[in-house]
Design a protein around this nucleic acid. Structure first.
Length: 604
RNA sequence: GCCCAGAUAGCUCAGUGGCAGAGCACUUCCUUGGUAAGGAAGAGGUCGGCGGUUCUAUUCCGCUUCUGGGCUCCA
C-alpha cells in the first residue's frame, strides 16, 4: 500500500476511504494530492480536526454538520462562548498541536438505535440523525474525539498540514431562519503549501478588485449613513460611466425596435392588489399614504408599461410591441443582505416589456436571447442560461404555466441553446430564463432575465384586436439584460478591476500639460473630444509632472496625454497608453481618428 | 431580520478614563518640471448618534444608525 494512499474512487464517483475499503479494494486509488477527490477527503478530515480542537478549547461545544463545500469546508456548532476572528488563530494552533500527536483516524459502525442511544444527550446529533434514513451509522475516532460521520477521511492526522481557517459566522440550524443560530467556522485545506498560498493569493486578488474599494478609489459612488442603508449616490465619475452604459443600451434598444417609455415611481395600492404584487411581494414593498389613499413605491416596472399599452386601442398589427425603461425601483431587502452596489434597496433596471401574440413567443424569446448575447460579448462575459419554473407563491392556472414554460424550452432547444432547469425558481407571474455570467475570476452572477407572463395582461384587461376582429389578451415578456445598472456596474468593476474598456471609462483621456504655456492647447483638444462624446480632463494642478502622471495612472485612465513645447509646436500628442502599456506620439488628427474608432467598439 | 466584528480628520489607519495623532488628500507660497510621489508653511475633529456609570467618557455600559464577514450546499 502506497504511503500516499488516502482512499479510492469507484466508477460512480463514490469516494471510499481506507477505513471502509478493506484489504482488496479494486476501485481506483486516490493519492494524496490536489485532485478533486483527494481534496474532498482532506478537507473533510480537516473539518473534523477543527472540531476536535474546538472540543478541547471549548469543552461544552456541541457539533451539528461539517461538510465540504465549494470554497473549502465548515463546521456548524453550538458553544457558550463568543468566538471571534481572533480565536481562529488559537484554534489553528490547537489543530497543529493535535497533528503532532499522530492520531490515526479510525472508523466503527453501529445501528441507528445504538447511535441514538450513544448520543442521547446531544440534541444536535439527534437532529442530524433524524435526517438520516440509513440503518447502520458510522463513527470516526481520532484520539479521544469521536464524531458521527459518513466519511470519507484520510487514514491519519499526518496528512493534514496545509489549512487555514478563514472566517467565523453565524448560520441558522439547517438554513432555517426561524431556527436557532449556530456558530460556523469556514476553512480551506490543500495537499501542499503552494496550492494553499495560491488560493490565498487569489482571495487577495478578489479583495483588490472589490467594487466597493475601487468604487471609492475611482470616486464612482458612495453611501451615506444619514440617507439610509442600501441607497447609493452616484459621484461624477460613476455617473459618467453609467451614462455611457445607458447611451450604448439606448441605441441598442432603438435598433431592435424598442420604444422608450416611463411610468410613475409611485402608484395607488389598488394597482398592486390587482397585479398580485401585494400578495406575492408585499413584504418587500414601501408603502405610504397620500390624502387618505394608500400608495406603493414600485418594486417593478411592469404595471406602468401595461397602463401605457392600454392607453390606446391596439391591433395585432402593432405586435410585438416593445417598451423599455431604465426603471428605478425600490425593494425592501433585509438589512443584513445589503452589499455595496450588488444588493441595494433602490436601483434602476434596464427593463423592457414586449407585448406579443402567443405564436410570437418563440421568436420574441430568441430575439431577446440574441440581444443578451450581444451585450455579454461586448464585455467578454461567458454566460449560461437557466430555465426557472413555477414557484410556491404564484398566480395563474397550472395549464397556463405549463404552456409558457414549454414555450421557453422549445425556443431554446430548437436553436441548440443549452440551459439548466431551476425547479420552482420562477417569478410569481410566470416562468423565466435567468442569465448567469462568469467574470474574470470565474465567479458567477445572475443578471439578465426573460420572463413569459400570461397572467398580468389578463388581470389588467390589456387587450388587442386580433385578425379575427375579436379582443385578446397579449402575452407579456418581461426582460432585463444587465439586470440593474447598480449590480452590473459592480460586476463590471470587479471583472475589469477598474480598467474599464475605453468606451466606458469615466475619464477616457487626461491631458497633462508640462507647463502653464501648454494648458491652452490641452483645453482646445479637450473641447474637441467632449464634442465627440469622449470624456477628457485637463490635469493642470501645480504638481510635478511625475506626480500628475502617477495620479492619472492610479485613476486607471486609458490615455494619459503629455503636452509640452514639442506637441504644441507640431500639433501632436505624446500618449501613454495604459491599456496597451506603451508610449507613442501621434498627430492631433491621428489621435482624434483613433479615439473615434475606438468609441465604435462600444456599439452593439 | 438573526449571529459575530467594527465606526477616530475628506481617505487609510494609530492611540487614550484626564491637551486628539500620522501618512495621503486639501489651502497658500516657492518650484515650470518630458512620463508613477519636488520643497515649505497652514487649515482641518462634538472620536457615528442618544442615554447611563464617573470628579472626569472618544475610552467603560446600554440603546440606536451605518459598515463589514456570514446565514442552500445535510453525519
Amino acid at each position: 500500500m502506497s504511503e500516499n494512499l488516502i482512499g479510492y474512487i469507484d466508477d460512480q464517483g463514490n469516494i471510499i476511504d481506507t477505513q471502509s475499503a478493506g484489504e482488496n479494494c479494486t476501485a481506483t486509488p486516490i493519492e494524496y494530492d490536489n485532485s478533486e477527490a483527494s481534496l474532498e477527503i482532506i478537507r473533510h478530515s480537516t473539518a473534523h480536526l477543527m472540531a476536535q480542537a474546538i472540543t478541547e478549547l471549548y469543552p461544552n461545544s456541541q457539533f451539528f454538520v461539517g461538510p465540504v463545500v465549494d470554497e473549502g469546508f465548515y463546521y456548524d456548532f453550538r458553544v457558550d462562548e463568543k468566538i471571534g476572528e481572533e480565536d481562529l488563530k488559537t484554534i489553528e494552533k490547537k489543530m497543529k498541536e493535535l497533528i503532532k500527536k499522530k492520531y490515526k483516524i479510525e472508523k466503527y459502525e453501529m445501528s441507528k438505535a445504538e447511535a441514538l442511544e450513544k448520543f442521547a444527550n446531544d440534541d444536535l446529533k439527534q437532529k442530524v440523525m433524524s435526517r438520516i434514513t440509513d440503518d447502520v451509522l458510522s463513527v470516526y475516532k481520532q484520539g479521544e474525539f469521536e464524531d458521527l460521520c459518513r466519511g470519507p477521511h484520510v487514514p491519519a492526522l499526518r496528512f493534514l498540514h496545509n489549512f487555514k481557517l478563514t472566517r467565523v459566522a453565524g448560520a441558522y440550524l439547517g438554513g432555517d431562519e426561524n431556527a436557532e443560530m449556530l456558530t460556523r467556522i469556514y476553512g480551506i485545506a490543500f495537499a501542499d503549501k503552494e496550492a494553499l498560498n495560491a488560493h490565498m493569493l487569489m482571495l487577495e486578488e478578489a479583495k483588490k478588485r472589490d467594487h466597493r474599494k475601487i468604487g471609492s478609489e475611482m470616486e464612482l459612488f458612495m453611501f451615506n449613513e444619514e440617507a439610509g442603508a442600501g441607497l447609493p449616490f452616484w459621484l461624477p465619475k460613476g455617473a459618467r460611466l453609467r451614462n455611457k452604459l445607458e447611451s450604448i443600451l439606448h441605441k441598442a434598444h432603438r435598433m431592435r425596435g424598442y420604444e422608450p417609455v416611463r411610468g410613475p415611481e409611485i402608484l395607488k395600492s389598488q394597482m398592486w392588489h390587482t397585479s398580485g404584487h401585494f400578495a406575492c411581494y408585499g413584504e418587500n414593498m414601501y408603502l405610504t399614504e397620500i390624502d387618505g389613499q394608500e400608495y406603493g413605491l414600485k418594486p417593478m416596472n411592469c404595471i406602468g408599461h401595461i397602463q401605457i399599452f392600454k392607453n390606446a386601442g391596439k391591433s395585432y398589427r402593432d405586435l410585438p410591441l416593445r417598451y423599455y425603461e431604465y426603471g428605478t425601483v425600490h425593494r425592501h431587502e433585509k438589512s443584513g443582505v445589503l452589499h455595496g452596489l450588488l444588493r441595494v434597496r433602490e436601483f434602476a433596471q434596464d427593463d423592457a416589456h414586449i407585448f406579443c401574440t402567443p405564436d410570437q413567443i418563440k421568436s420574441v424569446i430568441l430575439e431577446v436571447v440574441e440581444f443578451v448575447d450581444s451585450v455579454m460579448k461586448l464585455f467578454n462575459f461567458n454566460y449560461t442560461m437557466e430555465v426557472a419554473t413555477k414557484p410556491e407563491k404564484a398566480i395563474g392556472d397550472d395549464a397556463v404555466w405549463e404552456l409558457a414554460t414549454q414555450g421557453i424550452k422549445d425556443a431554446l432547444i430548437e436553436n441548440n441553446l443549452p440551459f439548466d432547469i431551476d425547479e420552482g425558481g420562477g417569478a410569481f407571474y410566470g416562468p423565466k430564463i435567468d442569465v448567469k455570467i462568469t467574470d474574470a475570476l470565474g465567479r458567477k452572477w445572475q443578471c439578465g432575465t426573460v420572463q413569459v407572463d400570461f397572467n398580468l395582461p389578463e388581470r389588467f384587461e390589456a387587450e388587442y384586436v386580433g385578425e379575427d376582429n375579436e379582443r385578446h389578451n397579449p402575452v407579456m415578456i418581461h426582460r432585463a439584460i444587465l439586470g440593474s445598472f447598480e449590480r452590473f456596474i459592480a460586476i463590471l468593476t470587479e471583472h475589469y478591476a477598474g480598467e474599464f474598456p475605453f468606451f466606458l471609462a469615466p475619464v477616457q483621456v487626461i491631458f497633462v500639460p508640462i507647463a502653464d504655456t501648454h494648458v491652452e492647447y490641452a483645453n482646445k483638444l479637450k473641447a474637441e473630444l467632449l464634442y465627440k462624446d469622449i470624456d477628457a480632463d485637463v490635469y493642470d494642478k501645480n504638481d510635478s509632472l511625475n506626480k500628475r502622471v502617477r495620479n492619472a495612472e492610479k485613476q486607471r485612465v486609458p490615455y494619459v496625454v503629455i503636452i509640452g513645447d514639442e506637441e504644441v509646436a507640431n500639433k501632436t500628442v505624446a500618449i501613454r497608453d495604459r491599456r496597451a502599456k506603451e508610449q507613442y506620439n501621434l498627430t492631433q488628427d491621428e489621435f482624434m481618428v483613433k479615439l473615434t474608432q475606438q468609441l465604435q467598439e462600444g456599439k452593439i
